[in-house]
Amino acid sequence: MFELRLVQGSLLKKVLESIKDLVNDANFDCSSTGFSLQAMDSSHVALVALLLRSEGFEHYRCDRNLTMGMNLANMAKMLKCAGNDDIITIKADDGTDTVTFMFESPSQDKISDFEMKLMDIDSEHLGIPEAEYEAIIRMPSAEFARICRDLSSIGDTVVISVTKEGVRFSARGDIGAANIVCRQNATVDKPEDATIIEMQEPVTLTFALRYMNSFTKATPLAEQVTISMSSDLPVVVEYKVAGMGYIRYYLAPKIEE
């Protein structure tokens, strides 16, 4: 039997909104560690890794490891039926091919349950080694989303370049070119407004903006985003999920031919 209960159900709604455009079907792995997922987009260019630790839930029971294959668009449809203040419970019994989502209003005067069919998914799990990154940028997530959105009206790709001067986001297209430079700024009133750049080596990498824009769907989850880069390695774009875990997106770089 597997059961989790999350009082702040809106977090789960936001998590689904952050991954459903990137991945169609995915296996959720349930274990004593927590509720997790690793899935690639259909072209094997981007990957999303989600971890919600068991300690972050108000109630978490997992008698044995369980993999639940779900269509994320359908799961998002069901979670959309939960109110933003609702408590969400996810339940699955051993040996059944369904999962139940239960939504309780804060005053307990409305209780809904939605049952969804599970599916068998052949998942390709990638082994991602721990890496020391040459440059790590922490910046306001809304600012990063704004930059990706603005640059996608100029071009299809973004060149991200980290130097001692700061981090430069550049795009080029038929109508012209754009450069946005963000400098380190740690002297802000609120820590969530800070931009911190840790650089061991200067790094320049090119990425498809379509994927970067898709990652920024996670912006409502966290005030800050962390972008980790090394030469010739996929970038990691990470959003923390309120003391419970993270969503990490990996994106393979474009290379000059």
Partner: peptide, 14 residues
């Protein structure tokens, strides 16, 4: 002109 690499070029399949 640039070409798109794939994640499987960097990470191994488990």
């Amino acid at each position: 002109c640039s070409s798109q690499t794939m994640l499987t070029e960097f990470f191994s399949m488990n």
